[in-house]
Design a protein around this nucleic acid. Structure first.
Lengths: 166, 166
DNA sequence: CTTAACTAGTTGAACCTTTAACCACCGTAC
DNA sequence: GTACGGTGGTTAAAGGTTCAACTAGTTAAG
């Protein structure tokens, strides 16, 4: 039973349609990241998070960002980023340098090798995003979907720290 | 630059709207599971995956499932499930017994304590799902959203191994 | 009935993420 | 100028997940 059982007075349970939607979303929440990771790991030897770090740096002015900005743009904690950047630095794709304006801050800089890594990796990743997210929906559906996702994201992440938010 | 740079001939890049939708979705893919984990961890001391395991067992006939079925229903690998069930067994919420029909198989069974754990935990979890997913959308929007998610899930997981699929 | 191939599940090691503690620096107030 | 709360970042330890190897049982073929 579970979702349909005995405590209706305290918490309203989900009806059949709501539960079906939620089960699907829960599935997508697991399976889509896994699919993206699989492609990137197989074709480029990087995780999705590592790719996001490189990609956000590649979009930044001077290919440079503060660690904390980068963490937000890549949707990760500062600690996680610190570990990941250490690995990316060992692979020669990122360099760290102290920030001149603020002695506490560290700038992460994409190296030339890192830039080339992004250029080589992006097409396969974009193709995957296309085939799994963009192409299965019509343009109108995709726009509608983007709006709905935006509504939910605003609820989950009210501070609007995510890129792409309204 | 990144998504808009130089290789248009090989891979079609995302236009501004597509990219915005994708960035939002990528944000939701990170933030929503994190929010659910936070609530469950704080209020019940279990991860979302552990809760899913308990919940799926609570819905099953005899509160019993084969490990491999349970792994599919909970959207996890068999190895992951095996580790998690070991922990849940130590906490007294699940019991493992060899399957009579097939000597290779193992049945996971929800104990009485496990059942009570689900009953105590479900209301808070459902309330969180409501507040983050169900309530922010109108019923019509939610239904539409469920359809769109279903379309994407069918693409990501063509074998329909997820619960709630069309 | 014996071998081969496959399925179900477990396990240990490697790896990644989180948590909490920590250092260094900035800004403000006294 | 110096004491103090707050910010930016790193790190070690703990905990969870994945990967690959392994055991045991089943099924099919010869």
């Amino acid at each position: 039973m579970a979702y349909t059982g005995g405590v209706e007075s305290e918490a309203p349970w989900l009806d059949a349609d709501q539960q079906r939607t939620w089960l699907r979303l829960a599935g997508l929440l697991i399976k889509l990241p896994a699919a993206l990771d699989t492609q990137l790991q197989r074709d480029a030897g990087v995780s999705h998070f590592e790719y996001m770090v490189l990609s956000r740096l590649s979009e930044a002015p001077n290919r440079t960002l503060r660690m904390s900005q980068l963490a937000e743009l890549a949707n990760g904690s500062l600690s996680r980023l610190s570990h990941v950047v250490k690995r990316l630095e060992l692979r020669g794709w990122v360099r760290r340098e102290p920030c001149a304006e603020d002695g506490r801050a560290t700038n992460a800089v994409l190296t030339e090798d890192g830039w080339e890594k992004v250029v080589r990796t992006a097409p396969g990743h974009v193709a995957t995003v296309r085939s799994l997210v963009v192409d299965p929906l019509t343009p109108a559906e995709l726009a509608r979907f983007g709006d709905l996702v935006g509504t939910l994201l605003a609820k989950v992440d009210p501070d609007e720290t995510c890129p792409g938010q309204p």
